[in-house]
Design a binder for these strands. Sequence first.
DNA 1: TACACTGATGTGAACGTACACATTCGAGTT
DNA 2: AACTCGAATGTGTACGTTCACATCAGTGTA
Lengths: 342, 342
Amino acid sequence: MSGDGEARAKPASIRDVARLASVSYQTVSRVLNDHPSIRDDTRQRVLAAIQTLDYRPNQAARALASSRPNVLGILSATVGEYGTTSSIVAIEQVARERGFSISTLNLPDASPEAIGEAVRQFEHEQVAGIIVLAPQVRVFNVIGGLGVRVPVATLHTGAGGTAETIASDQRLGAGLAVQHLVTLGHQDILHIAGPQDWIEAESRMHGYLDAMFEADLSTLPPIRGDWTADFGHFAGRELAGRRDFTAIFAANDLMAIGLMHGFRDAGVRVPEDICVIGFDDIPVAAHMWPTLSTVRVDFAELGRRAVAHLLAAIQQQPAPQFDLLSPELIVRQSTSAPATRR
Amino acid sequence: MSGDGEARAKPASIRDVARLASVSYQTVSRVLNDHPSIRDDTRQRVLAAIQTLDYRPNQAARALASSRPNVLGILSATVGEYGTTSSIVAIEQVARERGFSISTLNLPDASPEAIGEAVRQFEHEQVAGIIVLAPQVRVFNVIGGLGVRVPVATLHTGAGGTAETIASDQRLGAGLAVQHLVTLGHQDILHIAGPQDWIEAESRMHGYLDAMFEADLSTLPPIRGDWTADFGHFAGRELAGRRDFTAIFAANDLMAIGLMHGFRDAGVRVPEDICVIGFDDIPVAAHMWPTLSTVRVDFAELGRRAVAHLLAAIQQQPAPQFDLLSPELIVRQSTSAPATRR
DNA sequence: TACACTGATGTGAACGTACACATTCGAGTT
DNA sequence: AACTCGAATGTGTACGTTCACATCAGTGTA
């Protein structure tokens, strides 16, 4: 394979740099850590030596010697969901820019034991902080009760507690969706919520309830789903027989897509008979039939903010203040004015 | 919050375990590393002590002392795609079971410079090996020419080279799709391929060409797409005017979904006028209208195998031999016999 | 001139583990 | 009984970095 001339020897250490710059290794260490008391020409000399040797600090040794590690843990329970994935990608990128690496840990189930074990694992891996993407109420409680010693930041809105919480305004988003339906003339709006334990499910549901209340409309009891398109499909077929609503606000796009499928199976037309709006704006939403109205959330920005918060906490600095991230209403074909004949 | 009585002191070290088990720290180290020469009762005593103290080896120290690090790097360029994500989740889980953590690195673009820098970064992080999920031909070449010192495993089929390659039989999968269409009676089948540089795009396209050849059918020049539903949508509208094919095999589900959207816009019916089959079986495929026929690939298993391969290479053991992973044909509504009237 | 004080640098540990080399012990061989 | 051998365990040291402390010059103050 494409011979690479120079057989690279073992990487340069801090002492090699020190020797080349004619200073002690400790001085090099100070330069690396931005110690104030370093004469400027000394710093320049050290930096030049670093450059020459292509020296990069050994993270393992650094983590071992200091108690200030350089890995962020990402704890997620929502595997493969669009929003989660988008956030993780963004987190990883910005964390890397700030000199941290990422260790991800996916929970197949979010049982308290599993969460506890995961946090233990992270602590043991000496992570600097943990970003939690498992937005279940229970996770908060477990983590809160665990006496975690490292900073924790959680994505998504809800439960305050000790953890830094990065929110997008899911309630506002839900409100946008409902107001859109109301503006179109709908009065009987059903909500398909996410699982009971989920913070996002709760806040989207509250957004629905609030918006309905403000519009002076009576609400129907929400239906509990599990976020999946398969559930939506099932629910759609079940609900097709009901005539007490003209529009549905689903807590996420997948369920909305499944719903439309179920309605189709049952001969209910969207949007003519029933309107459907989702939440998330996953990439295929624009290509459904009918194309799916939804609420877009900037998951990547959410992730970036989580990192900013977490790093501030790690460095004992005041948390940066962000405005709540405003979701955006995306109107497509699946919502229209209610049919008059019904 | 929620007082947790015992203020946990610093975690137990190997010496604490040794003291409790009345052995030397070295003996504990041997137990941890499965050294053969350990009396069984000694081993039991040590294991009991480990249990009691909830001891877990400090990975940083371990990585520092040995040159045998315990982190696997995942290099990916295909952000947020379903298959990639599924594989990564599986990789992460099985790697963790085998005592490795995962460091992910997502490339916004797959330029040679970016790839080189990423590999450097991983080497510098002392990763034990790298799993590459950026299945572009170019990536192989860059990595091959880089003289990477750590083992590399790449997912997906194609380009042999020095890297361990974990393949699912994409050609076979593509063949399944085409044969399905042929069996239904189609003769003029168009292929929407992935981007030119992508290994998977190439092998799916070759699968298409091979299957057409075997069926003694003439092929149409494939159309190059970019994997996205948006492209599919565009292509669908363009192709709606053509009458020289009765079925389309799209290289992935997203493009297939976009295609159906485009056809819908143009008044072409699926499957009555044109049949569409995709590849991947993403979760929403079953809920399209019409539901999308496709080829299912076990991405998770693919990821697990990549880890097995990589760990074998790391431990200088012979690579485990797997049969090629066989994709599965999933027949749904978007494919049917061609209309006779056309 | 002696004194404390600050800025810049150097020295000796320590972090928790693995590796190379002792050491001990018992069994088998001569 | 002395000897070899291997299995089981213990002792030093190194990995590359940071931390606590020591040093040493220079500066201002009494």
